[in-house]
Write a protein that binds this DNA or RNA. Sequence first.
DNA 1: AAACACTATTGCGTAATTTGAAATAATCGG
DNA 2: CCGATTATTTCAAATTACGCAATAGTGTTT
Lengths: 303, 303
Amino acid sequence: MEDLEIFVNVVEADGFTAAAALMNMTVTATSRRVKALEERLGVRLLNRTTRRISLTEAGQIYFDQVRRILSELRDAEEQLSQLSGSARGTLRVTAPMTFGVRRLAPWIARFADAHPQLQVQLHLDDQTIDIVGQGLDMALRIGYPRDSSLIARPILPVARYVCAAPAYLQKWGAPQTPLDLLRHSCLHYDNLSVREEWTLNGPDGPEAVEVQGRLCSNNGEVLCEAAVQGLGIVLLPDFMVEQALAENRLQRILEGFEPPPFTLYALYPSRHFVPTKIRLLLDFLILAAGQGAIGRHFSGNPP
Amino acid sequence: MEDLEIFVNVVEADGFTAAAALMNMTVTATSRRVKALEERLGVRLLNRTTRRISLTEAGQIYFDQVRRILSELRDAEEQLSQLSGSARGTLRVTAPMTFGVRRLAPWIARFADAHPQLQVQLHLDDQTIDIVGQGLDMALRIGYPRDSSLIARPILPVARYVCAAPAYLQKWGAPQTPLDLLRHSCLHYDNLSVREEWTLNGPDGPEAVEVQGRLCSNNGEVLCEAAVQGLGIVLLPDFMVEQALAENRLQRILEGFEPPPFTLYALYPSRHFVPTKIRLLLDFLILAAGQGAIGRHFSGNPP
DNA sequence: AAACACTATTGCGTAATTTGAAATAATCGG
DNA sequence: CCGATTATTTCAAATTACGCAATAGTGTTT
């Protein structure tokens, strides 16, 4: 029976080795199980050359059916655990590095504590990962995803602040309008280009400024640290700079000109029945983000 | 995975003991597998009192889904073996006793010989059996079945003959019309009544006669043997009397008055994809019956 | 009410199955 | 034609499943 799942995985991973790695099995076992399945059915499902595999005609038919059937079975079991209300097993989550450390970590800890039968694996990585391919249950990402096979649930508005170190401002003066940024060193994300456009919503509507600076990076913490050291002005998400702001190593500028906030999305595979463990985490995150947001985002000013 | 099948069987058999017997398993194993399934799902599926079992709410939902899914899986695998064209596994057939010995046995032997990978189990029994409940693949029965969940495929017309022993006829004279039967001892099937109605199609249409005799039985061979011994007149299917007729221990009478023939049906469970092994046997039987019937039923007189 | 009959679960020793590391065979790319 | 990668096979070890017998529990019967 499990053979079916293995067979499907081998086909989807296009190879025994890849499939075995995906399922944390040895190649030996994988090969044997598929072979056993073929012998049970009395039909060859895969054409193997040692270098590549392909489905036989029968295998193609069987694969299509079995994949659907397995998916229905998963649905049935999900439906089951839904009415039991409790979740068990393993929940694999991925999130961006800094967000994961600063915001997610305490939430996840509380969540894991609330569900002792659930083992939570939190994988922090700034790369966007193929979530279904890696067997992940949920990805937390900033910005809307391209992969439309995923459900994207907005979790949290992420405010962004324009900040600089007090020493920098003392030396170069604080910009009063977005246009002033042109005369400053603006540290920005590395989108493979030297220039970046910052859009700020002022009293007269949005203003776009094409900034440039002496440093850019694909890592927000690098930018934050550089700003702290007085290298320039940064535009970063709240969680990235809140500590530096609290310690007065950075201070906000251009407060009348808010950059449009990002949104943090929870991404998870689209299914008939959303697994309970995903549902639980989702609800928990929405709740946690909502509670935490009251003070931080919606009712007033940042700390 | 097999656990699913076991669970479904336990529910359908309404008990571990019955299900175990059906699957040729021990009750121990059955109980353990269901328990393992429940533990894997983390949900109790069955409410057991040691005397009776019932589905929990979750179990009911799961059962419905899983039964459907398993049926789809079987379909998929059948579809597979259909395009392979060959059959394997076990084919369980039931048939009436005498028909099985006289007609079916040589056919089945040839069929089994033609399909070495198929193990054929022929269960001869004059009782009509719950074919799906007993895990049978096909039942051969004379007369149309009540169970509408089965597909009934006519295989063979079964002519019936009115016969008596030569000695009997010499002593009492041969009846010339159906009405003459009233003056004779007619050995008939035991339908829990002493009387039976014989309908014979004569030149002026069907004539029904309510016969009675000194012996009745629910077993055709008993009647045949009794007739050979001169106890009376019988109306029996061809296969039941052909040997006695060939050896002149019986002879046909009232040849101008043919009783309406019976029909032998092949009964098998209705499914999306008829299993290859059933399909093969069915085709084989139709062919065999057709070939054998040319001389025996359609073109002329019996031997 | 109490004994009975039947059913499901558990303990334990045994047997079968499965497993992984390493060796082997086989194929694609250079 | 060789090197690199991939699937299969070999064989011993370990995990797992199994059946028998005993246990516990429930509905029925006397």
